[in-house]
Amino acid sequence: MKKLNLLKSAIIAVLVGLVCFAFTAAPERITVKGSDTLVILAQKWAEEYMKTNSGANIQVTGGGSGVGISALINGATDIANASRKMKQTEKDKLKQRYNTLGVEVACAKDGITIYLNPANKVTELSIKQLSDIYKGVITNWKEVGGADQSIKLYGRENSSGTYVFFQENVVKGDYASSCQTLPGTAAVVNAVKKDAYGIGYGGAAYAEGIVICKVKKDDKSAAFVPTAETIKTGEYPITRFLYMYLRNRPTGETKKYIDWILGAEGQKLVVDMGYFPVK
């Protein structure tokens, strides 16, 4: 009986110790990882937040939405930035490792922008045409009203949320094998800038030195460029939310930081950086 009491006491002591350990204050460093689309905004948020909150320590890195979510599941980051929704398989992994379903915070909106070289005569494309172009069905610009030149496709790597979102909502099939995958939206913009017959896609905030192609839902619709107005009204057809994912409901400094992002100051930066506010 004595032996049993000793065992019980030991188990209770260990349990109490562990539970106490679980609630000890964690250091206030916040790590943010993920979407390359969101990374420049996330860096700006961190920079501005740390200016007014001297105690805060926020580290932001990119890598792609998939990389960020994997890091969240592995415990390597506190916040995962994503330009797509979390997949069921990723939720299942989070359930297995942390026993939670994760917390989704929509922090900005984005219009996926179609980049063209200024030398290209084409100014607008329909979703169907974009799909056919990226599937490799349309391979020459003359088929969509441009010059008699082969279309050079530029896109993102498959760890990118933009890659997944564009595939699911525009391409609706497999990308053509000729599509050159590049590590980051800036690289896509750069490639199109140098290639008169190139086409690329990515976040609106990166569109510099290229021409933004107007996009229409179908042949009968009017074509629009992504602006705050066309995104708000839903006229621009390729819009999406940008997300932050956390393992658990935020507390402490993390909650304060997220509240700030969703507040007036954070959302003003969204607009300043070329993205679109959540509301």
Partner: peptide
């Protein structure tokens, strides 16, 4: 059944 609760940092 599997119940996942976001209480006290994750409980199932």
């Amino acid at each position: 059944f599997q119940l996942f609760a976001d209480v006290l940092g994750g409980l199932s």
